[in-house]
Design a binder for these strands. Structure first.
Length: 755
DNA sequence: CTCCTTTGTCTTTTT
DNA sequence: GACAAAGGAG
């Protein structure tokens, strides 16, 4: 095995074949290379490919890694298991899930499905759906699952207040419904695998014997349940190599626990640690700027990346007047370079892609958008998949509900409700009642419509493979005709092309076929449920890439443009509400974004930007100040006046300083627009940094002023307190201001001083 | 039961 | 401003 292309540290990691090994690999330090060479080296030392398990963060990374190993060895590495945690668990469960009491043909539901289940649960449990949103409840449940806490344990240990008691109730019901429908959500794949290992030592032993050598990439982004699975697998032979960088941990919202990488040494005895600090990717200027930013995080292991690369062009920050100008100017620059396939535009949130997309369309630049409205989330694609799911798993009531009246076949809500309650009381699937629906109290004509639907599914199931099933659904059930009637011919054409694309993907699953239709259907559905957006990225076509910073993890480009680099966008307003912890994660995110660039890094922000129908004003991100230094150039927008709205919303304190510029002020008819000078902007900025205290605001027993007192406010000046109203978590104070008249403010935000 | 209008919510990030 | 859900009319 020729290891001469590796540096000493890399070589050391590649040559360490057994025992626990932690490779701390800074951005661009050749991490992927180390993993691929290490796999190849294991194989070269006679270790059998089927004894090797490598976990990557995305399916795309897995496929690339497979390819690279094969290129190194000049032979197939197909017997190595290289996959994501979710795919691995999916595969394991498909073999042995019956041992924990579930059916083999389970379906995997996505977040939208989870939401609609939860919405129904909230209603059925008699809670007001307006006051109880499904999202916070689901995210609490997900958090519980990510630390391997089931419904019983949650009820016992975590249900401590109104909210968590409600969550506990919903959690229980949610698990029950998924169980009867024989479906799993994303978290379940991990949870159930851990359960399988825990309850069945023989199965665990089988996998310990199979996966004697384990490698895990992006270890800083593993969560507790993933760690548990890894510890189960690795506990026998302890040949575990993890690679990661705590500075690039950006998935804590998904339960990623940075502790996993920080305490690897204590988790695995006699662990060897190798640090890779030489960066091969970026210019010195890019690296220096990124290092200056990340060094503001406290509590990290000190690590300074260095490079022998050229100094390169300076990193540039530029502030534009509006998000539209920002997009137009950047696209103009990019068009001049013409180097589309080596260029990426990165942003914090998917919603920010829109102005860029518009600019691309206008400038006629080919682009590729990762994320956004993903292929598998499109309505027609999800509908087709729901049809397939019902074919595979007749218990899947969730999918059945989705399509029973799509296309519209005259089965209305009340009939569906009757069907649903009948299924619950008879303890059977909804599908099984469709054949003879007159017995459940629906009118005759509806019963016959239900029977028709039942026959459609039976007919489809008799098709020879997935592809012909899809062809059947596309052409024989009036789906596209219905779309055309409802939404017109253009919609029909677009939907049809998406369905055709799905059919193409399905075709790949039937080519190698000795298996029966249900097996290929099963494989297809499971594969389809686990694809990520980034998996679809094909770097070979010459297109400009648009994606979130999260999606860019692990990738690199010659030219990187980071847009929307403003306070409240990046760092996001949401994260600012979490205080320092939130800001540190955003800082890591900024670090990841910056270190994607090889040669040119251009960062930008916009003073004004449309937000929820209004234009809002923004100040540059705090990370700009942190990045400043040699080789970093700044250019701010020349704006003579900055204006801002006051938006006092009780539950959204971060909206308080939403700015709006003059050009759009007529749009915000509901709130006044004030001309303010730079000092006020500065004061607003200072105030922004105190959001933490706003969020954790403790309502005092009594306010330091009373009705009738004169008080002063940072923006409105002097005024007289007219009334004070106790509204629970804060006081609502009505003040008659000298200059601007009567206003109602919240004491916690307004910070009024008695004079 | 369906279609159209009105209302409310929303912006982190994803397997 | 955009999109989904609820409400109202036919």
């Amino acid at each position: 095995m020729d290891l001469s292309v590796l540096n000493d540290k890399q070589k050391e990691a590649v040559e360490c074949l057994s025992g626990p090994l932690l490779v701390v690999a800074g951005a661009g330090s050749g991490k992927t290379r180390v993993i691929t060479y290490r796999i190849a080296n294991l194989l070269a030392h006679g270790i059998k490919p089927y004894n090797i398990l490598a976990i990557t963060f995305t399916n795309k990374a897995a496929n690339e890694m497979k390819e690279r190993v094969e290129n190194l060895l000049g032979l197939g590495a197909s017997d190595c298991t290289i996959s994501t945690f979710h795919s691995l668990c999916n595969r394991i469960l498909h073999i042995d899930i019956e041992r924990i009491g579930m059916g083999k043909n389970f379906n995997i539901i996505d977040t939208d499905d989870s939401k609609s289940i939860m919405r129904k649960i909230i209603k059925d449990l008699g809670y007001d759906p307006k006051k109880n949103k499904e999202r916070p409840i689901l995210s609490e449940i997900s958090k519980a699952k990510n630390i391997n806490v089931g419904p019983e344990e949650y009820a016992a240990k975590y249900a401590i207040d109104d909210f968590t008691r409600k969550v506990s109730e919903c959690y229980n019901e949610y698990e029950k419904r998924k169980y009867t429908a024989n479906v799993l959500d994303f978290d379940d794949l991990l949870v159930k695998t851990a359960q399988l290992f825990k309850e069945n030592p023989d199965i665990l032993d089988k996998y310990q014997e199979k996966y004697k050598y384990i490698l895990i990439d992006e270890y800083q982004d593993t969560n507790d349940i993933q760690f548990l699975i890894v510890s189960y697998l690795a506990s026998k032979y302890k040949n575990i190599c993890v690679v990661g960088d705590e500075d690039q941990s950006i998935y804590s919202f998904r339960g990623a626990n940075i502790r996993n990488i920080l305490s690897f040494e204590s988790d695995f005895e006699n662990a060897k640690i190798i640090k890779l600090e030489q960066n091969y990717r970026s210019t010195q200027n890019i690296l220096n700027a990124a290092n200056r930013v990340i060094s503001n995080n406290i509590g990290r292991k000190e690590k300074v990346l260095w490079t022998e690369n050229a100094i390169g062009d300076p990193v540039r920050f530029e502030e534009y007047k509006s998000d539209k100008t920002e997009a137009d100017e950047l696209i103009r620059k990019i068009k001049k370079d013409k180097n589309y396939s080596n260029t990426a535009i990165l942003y914090r949130a998917n919603s920010q892609s829109k102005s860029i997309e518009e600019a691309c369309v206008y400038a006629n630049i080919p682009y590729r958008l990762i994320g956004g409205v993903q292929f598998y989330k499109r309505k027609e694609v999800k509908d087709m998949i729901a049809y397939l799911r019902v074919c595979l798993n007749a218990n899947d009531d969730i999918s059945l509900l989705r399509i029973i009246n799509t296309p519209s076949r005259g089965i209305g809500e009340s009939s569906i409700e009757k069907l649903r309650t009948a299924a619950i009381s008879q303890n059977c699937s909804m599908f099984s009642l469709l054949n003879d629906a007159s017995s459940i109290g629906v009118i005759k004509s509806t019963a016959s419509k239900m029977k028709d639907f039942y026959n459609i599914i039976l007919k489809a199931k008799s098709e020879v493979d997935v592809k012909s099933m899809l062809m059947f659904f596309k052409t024989k059930i009036g789906y596209l005709e219905d779309v055309e009637i409802q939404e017109g011919i253009d919609a029909r054409i677009e939907r049809e092309s998406n369905i055709d694309e799905l059919i193409n993907k399905a075709a790949e699953f039937v080519s190698s076929d000795t298996e029966d239709a249900m097996d290929s259907l099963n494989n297809f559905l499971n594969e389809v449920s686990l694809v990520a957006d980034i998996d679809e990225l094909d770097a070979s076509d010459k297109k400009l890439t648009l994606m979130t910073v999260h999606a860019s993890k692990g990738l690199e480009f010659d030219n990187v443009y980071i847009v929307g680099f403003s306070e409240n966008l990046f760092p996001s307003a949401m994260s600012l509400m979490d205080g320092d912890v939130g800001v540190e994660e955003e800082r890591r995110l900024a670090y990841v974004a910056m270190t994607r660039a090889r040669k040119n890094l251009h960062i930008s922000s916009a003073v004004s930007k449309f937000f929820q129908g209004k234009s809002a004003m923004y100040i540059p991100s705090r990370f700009v100040d942190e990045a400043k230094g040699d080789g970093f150039e700044c250019k701010y927008a020349e704006i003579s006046n900055r204006f801002y709205d006051d938006v006092y919303e009780e539950d959204r304190p971060y909206n308080k300083y939403k700015f709006s510029d003059q050009a759009h002020s007529h749009k915000s008819s509901r709130s006044d627009t004030y001309v303010v000078n730079k000092e006020v902007v500065k004061a607003a900025k200072a105030d922004l940094s105190k959001f933490k205290s706003h969020v954790t605001y403790q309502k005092p027993e009594k306010l330091p002023y009373d009705e009738g007192d004169l008080v002063s406010h940072i923006k409105f000046g002097e005024g007289k307190v007219k009334s004070i109203k106790d509204i629970g978590k804060d006081f609502e104070v009505t003040i008659d201001f000298k200059d601007s008249g009567e206003r109602i403010l919240l004491a916690g935000f307004a910070k009024l001083n008695k004079i």
